[in-house]
């Protein structure tokens, strides 16, 4: 255990940064002023590294292990020698992720604004984005055979904007999926949701039976300016209900009038750039505008962390659509398509 007293290293760094910003910067000019600016930036970097570094180091080691390597030098050498040429897409994804992690500490603004992030997220998550107007792209992505945000594999997902459609499938399954005729449909809405196509698709991408589910795909770069309604808690907190346990990172919880759990938001961190929000409100808090405030609050955190918040819901869920709309997630005519396990009812 760390034997040191408060303040923590992060809090001390913050104190020094604030001193430079408040007292030193206004009192200096020329070269010293410029170097004070540099020093302020460097301290911000240290603060971010203290908070994000440990998780980044773990994720990086895990990514290298998946490639059978143990260091950046090994990876550099393997790329140069061509030893990993048969896994080049995977290698590039790991490298991109590593560089993004470095930027998250060194200069998060470089990762781009919300719209850039959305494109980067979809390019990363699906394997390709955007599709040209009227185009349906079937793309193989290693992420369709690896674990998703909750550890489960989703062998088929798709996103359609009013311009074009990208369908993401396991590498090697592109041609077979194409033969199903999916790609001839200009819009996802023209696809049948029937179990027949789901079964066929499930067999093609490697699985048992399945059903295709469609819904509204929303995202926001400017959440509604609503007051905070909840408190961020680690999932390990005993007050967090079990439905929030599978989500990534802290969860957002609102309390009812008796101080008990009343509503919550979880984040599905599909990748570094796209975090999908899920909200549930208990009976006691319904009709009070809590859900929209929670979603807007969560969206602000996602944006502050360098990602873009997305929000998915079934077309036949007007309550959810209403919450999204009010929280600053307009319906832009975007859709998602996913292959789910067959209902066993």
């Amino acid at each position: 255990m760390n034997p040191h007293d408060d303040p923590s290293a992060a809090a001390l760094t913050e104190a020094v940064r604030e001193f430079l910003e408040r007292d030193v910067l206004p009192a200096t000019d020329g070269r010293v002023r410029f170097h004070t600016r540099v020093a302020i930036n460097v301290l911000g970097m240290i603060e971010r590294e203290l908070s994000l570094g440990p998780a980044q180091a773990q994720a990086h080691a895990e990514a290298l292990r998946r490639l059978g390597l143990s260091s950046e030098s090994d990876l550099a050498a393997a790329i140069r020698s061509g030893a990993l040429d048969d896994r080049l897409d995977e290698v590039t994804a790991v490298v991109r992720e590593t560089v993004a992690a470095k930027l998250e500490v060194a200069n998060p603004r470089y990762l781009g604004d919300g719209l850039d992030r959305l494109h980067t997220h979809l390019r990363h998550w699906l394997g390709h984005w955007p599709a040209a107007p009227g185009e349906v792209v079937v793309v193989g992505s290693p992420f369709r055979v690896g674990p998703g945000w909750d550890g489960r594999t989703r062998p088929f997902i798709g996103v359609a904007s009013p311009e074009g459609v990208v369908l993401s499938v396991p590498p090697g399954a592109e041609a077979a999926v194409e033969r199903l005729g999916l790609a001839r449909q200009r819009l996802l809405s023209e696809l049948g949701d029937g179990d027949g196509l789901g079964d066929e698709l499930a067999r093609t991408v490697g699985g048992g039976g399945g059903r295709l589910a469609r819904g509204c795909f929303r995202w926001s770069v400017r959440p509604a300016e609503l007051e905070d309604a909840g408190e961020w808690l680690p999932v390990s907190d005993p007050r967090v209900p079990s439905w929030l346990h599978p989500f990534n990172g802290d969860v957002l919880v609102a309390w009812d009038d008796e101080g008990k759990y009343g509503a919550g938001v979880g984040r599905k961190q599909h990748d570094r750039w796209g975090h999908e929000l899920a909200v549930v409100t208990e009976e006691a808090l319904r009709g009070r505008g809590i859900a929209r405030r929670l979603v807007a609050q969560a969206a602000r955190r996602v944006l502050a962390e360098g990602a873009v918040p997305t929000y998915l819901h079934d077309f036949d869920n007007p309550a959810s659509a209403h919450v999204a709309e009010a929280a600053g997630f307009p319906d832009r005519g975007w859709q998602f398509l996913v292959l789910l396990e067959k209902r066993t009812v």
Binding site: V38, K102, Y110, V137, V138, V139, G140, E178
Partner: peptide, 27 residues
Amino acid sequence: AAIGRRVCEVEWDLLALVAPGPVPVLA
């Protein structure tokens, strides 16, 4: 010293030039 932590900005630019993402299978 701080310039050492700007290398990743250039790496990001370089990836955008040489590896903008997997090539679509179907055009």
